[in-house]
Design a protein around this nucleic acid. Structure first.
Lengths: 231, 231
DNA sequence: GTCTATAGTTCGATAGAC
DNA sequence: GTCTATCGAACTATAGAC
């Protein structure tokens, strides 16, 4: 495939040479979109993929549709795993612990078996916090359904947790998870080298108890304060 | 000032007409940068400010320096308030509650008395989660110092909270705060209309107990689980 | 399906008059 | 200090050959 062209493309990874251009483009787009939608250029994606820019438009039409394709591919994979883990937890005879549910929420996001995991995480963090209609529509389409499942799980496992507070708790939990997905290197700076946000295990070990305690604190009858009685 | 020009500029807000162009440009830039750095254009900023595009370069030189000027203006205001509130809390005879410290962390961010508050919040959320060197440098310069103060406060008020876990807790707390500053409208969707992320009081009433419980869960000897014994 | 070439816009920044 | 006018580069998308 690469042999019919004038100059060989050494820039294309070896394992990708035999696959369809379609997927090569998606991989390249994932990397480039990781620096932001507006800042990404079709030219750079084409260069990184080692294809002509026009080919991207042939396969994906517009930049916006390419962006959605990048998200759709990973989201279905990740959220499929999430739903599967969540169902498995509730399949047993007795109820799971909230800690296990939080694990099911974050493990699939970080454990995807590709080297672009970090790029996709950044795309997601950006989209989740965006005010752009394009981003909000994608979050709604690909992430709202699984969010509702986790909100139900929060309520099922936390006595006295009203739906309203379960929704807030889910939003807060996702916010905490962003910290892990953004991998800005800031924890390293603030801790003088002790906290590494590339060490997902060390982070998860703190995130899980942090969120679980937070969720339980929003349940009725929790010893701690806060005027939360308007539900 | 507007009278010496050929056509009067009705698009400029009344209260801004008498002020210097310098501040008008900063306000316009804040609004436009709220949709992202790369996506923002100097042309749109100039239009919104009602000035010539060249004037922006005269005052701020480059787009990048204008962006920093926007952040610097608000950051000094907000973080000054934060430091003041934090010092006041620890000035008394007995130690404050952790809840009060969390309030001091978020109140100044949302209570700034200008109508661009939402735009600046979005700029901040984007910068805090960015992998771009430009953004990380700004966070480091304008937000790391105050972060260290709050991390110290977390430790002082939470027996058994190691520095490492205090840093993680601070990162998680900021992550939760992002939920409030992003104002994506997602809580409204997920709750069927009950949870409004534009209602900052309702959010703070949940955020404070959520974070406080999370911070305490990362202290040694907390009844809850998690392999956090590697510090 | 993939390419080259380019049309048509928009961008950041500058030159130079006032 | 503020403007008009414009340069040169980068952008998305398309036309058309193979």
């Amino acid at each position: 495939m690469a042999t019919i062209r004038g100059k060989p493309r050494e820039d294309v990874p070896v394992q990708a040479r035999g696959t369809a251009r379609f997927d090569i483009i998606l991989d390249a787009a994932e990397q480039v979109f990781g620096t932001g939608y507006a800042g990404a250029s079709m030219r750079e994606i084409a260069e990184r993929a080692g294809v002509a820019q026009a080919l991207i438009h042939y396969h994906f039409d517009t930049k916006e549709k390419l962006f959605e394709a990048v998200i759709a591919r990973r989201a279905s994979e990740i959220n499929g795993q999430r739903a599967q883990m969540l169902d498995a937890l509730f399949a047993g005879d007795d109820a799971p612990r909230l800690e296990e549910v939080i694990e099911a929420l974050f493990r699939p996001t970080i454990a995807v078996d590709h080297d672009n995991a970090n790029s996709f995480s950044r795309i997601l963090v950006s989209a989740a916090n965006s005010a752009e209609e394009r981003d909000q529509l994608l979050v709604q389409r690909y992430y709202d359904p699984i969010a509702l499942k986790f909100i139900d799980a929060f309520m099922a496992l936390t006595p006295g947790l009203a739906r309203m507070n379960a929704v807030w708790a889910y939003m807060f939990a996702i916010g905490v998870g962003m910290t892990m997905m953004a991998t800005t290197g800031r924890p390293l700076r603030l801790s003088g080298g002790e906290c590494d946000d590339r060490d997902v295990e060390a982070m998860l070990a703190r995130i899980v108890p942090f969120i679980c305690a937070g969720v339980r604190a929003l349940a009725d009858g929790d010893p701690h304060i806060g005027p939360r009685n308007d539900h």
